[in-house]
Every structure is written in C-alpha cells, then in structure tokens.
Design a protein around this nucleic acid. Structure first.
Lengths: 142, 142
DNA sequence: GTGAGTTAGTTCCGAATTGGAACTAGTTAG
DNA sequence: CTAACTAGTTCCAATTCGGAACTAACTCAC
C-alpha cells in the first residue's frame, strides 16, 4: 500500500470514524456526547476512539481526577484533517441538499463572510479541478 | 440525517468506494482495471460501482457493441468530489509517509509547479483552518 | 448510608457485510 | 474446437456491526 490516499483511508476510511471527526471539529470531546450526537453504538464508538488515539489523531486528556475521566481532543495531526471534513461538507451542501437546504454554513472569521471552501494551488492561488492536475509519480497500488 | 457530511458519507463513506474514486480520477474506467489495481473482490467492486452509478457519481458508457461493454466515467457530480480525494492525498503525504516518500505529487498544469493543495475561503482567498471558521446553522444530527 | 445519577466503558448475541475462490456468459482469435 | 478476454454472479466461511444490557467508579440528595 504505497498510495497516500489508501494509507489515509486505512486510518480514517470508515463512516463512523469520519463522523466522529466531524463532531470533534465541532468541539465535541466526551464519550457520552459523541454517543448521543452520533447515535453510534457505544461498542463501536469506544473502538473508533481507541483507534483514533492509537493513530495520533485524537489524544486523551484527563479533565478530572476521581474518578479519572478523559476527553478526546484533536492533535495537530487530527486538526490537519480539516480540509477532508470541509470538502465532504461542501459536496453534501451542493449535491445532497433537500428541502431544508444546507444545514451548516461556515463563516470565515477573518473576512466575516459565509464561505465556500475552495481548493487552490498553493503556488498560484488558482482553483484546482480534476483536469488541472497531472500526477507526477508512480501509479498507486492499493 | 440532516448534516451534509453525514449525507455525503452515506454515499461515499466507505474505504473501497473512496479507493474506486481515487482510481477514477486517475483515469481508470474498466471493471477489470479497477479490480486489478485495487485488489478488491469482484463481488464488492460490482456492488460499489452499482451504488456509485445509482448515486449519479459514475455513469456507464458503452464503449463497444457485441458483446456490449461499458466503462465507468465520472459525472460532473463525481468530478466535484475531487477536493475530497485530493485532501485525503495531501494528508497522507504529510502524515503517513514512509521511507519511500510521497508516491504521488500533483503538478498544476496552469502554473507548472508541484502543488500543495490548499483550502481557502472563496471570498478573501485566505487559507482556512479549523479555528478560522464558525458554524452558522443548526448542530448536525447523525 | 442507601438509592439514584453521571460518565465511560465492556460483554453478549443474532444479523449483516466481507473476503476468497469458483463459476457463468457473450464474443473474438488462433 | 479451444483458449482468452471482459464483466460480472454465486456460494460459503469469517469478520464486523447493531442493539441492549451490564459493570465500575465515583457524587449528590435525602
């Protein structure tokens, strides 16, 4: 498995894992809150949180002694997944809307506008689509 | 399920589905090629391709008569998933590298540079991180 | 100091999904 | 006539998932 996409998916390529991360970006931190918000079984949630901690994407931080209680916080590695979640959000807003319309708009604090997240080339700052890029490197293996 | 992320994941939130899409962006189009490249069982591949076609993300295009053979091509809806795949790629390049280094660099045709895909606000063109956005809207339900 | 509540899990079981390998079908090439 | 190519389908055992109940370590109210 030498492809970066495949390697990434081996860690987060799972419905519940991605939903846990979505909630983490919305500042959910505790087991019970994840469970209530997601509706995932406690069994799977415990498993997914453990794997995310093992992968260094979340970290357990003790927030009270007696009884010892931990909350789950995004690490830098985890925060760096923001573009993935935002891209999923953007696509859903465009293609999966129902009568209620997009449920979650993102406000950009710096400029104050409701924003459409857009992927650009860091070099020339122009938006990038599938036709604008050429892979330079070996074809990935699964 | 009123959250766009959850709605998106209900269609593509699956390891193999995402890998199929990665290959589709690299111009893979035929059943046998997907199968060989991914190593997925034929059974699952057929299932995932069918679901992607049902979702309007891929379309079957006949490329030969007798016997009728079809190839799978990204629709506009599918091509719009590019940022998702590219974000996964970028993260893997950063956090999951091994000794061999990132296996797939993307060249930006317009400016000719190897590019780091970057997520920006479409309004002010500034890069956007988790701390730069505020959700404006209801909290999503799973 | 007993009973209910809070938080973070674990255990158990039946149901659904997956992986692996073999098999089918239509057609062309030798 | 036989093999190869392409795109699937079928079958079975093994793994994973969903749902509900249970455990553990405390706190607080009465």
């Amino acid at each position: 498995m030498q492809c970066s996409v495949a390697r990434t998916l081996s860690v987060i390529g799972d419905r519940w894992t991605l939903l846990v991360l979505r909630d983490a970006f919305l500042r959910t931190r505790r087991f019970e809150d994840f469970q209530r918000q997601l509706g995932v079984t406690r069994h799977l949630l415990a498993d997914r949180l453990r794997k995310l901690v093992d992968a260094g994407i979340l970290e357990k931080v003790r927030y009270q002694e007696k009884p010892a209680r931990y909350e789950y916080r995004l690490t830098e590695k985890g925060r760096d997944l923001h573009p993935v979640i935002v891209s999923l959000l953007r696509w859903g807003d465009r293609w999966m809307v129902d009568d209620a319309g997009p449920p979650l708009t993102l406000l950009h604090r710096q400029c104050g506008h409701a924003m459409q997240p857009t992927l650009v080339c860091d070099h020339c700052r122009e938006p990038v689509g599938p036709r604008d890029v050429a892979p330079a490197g070996a074809l990935p293996r699964a």
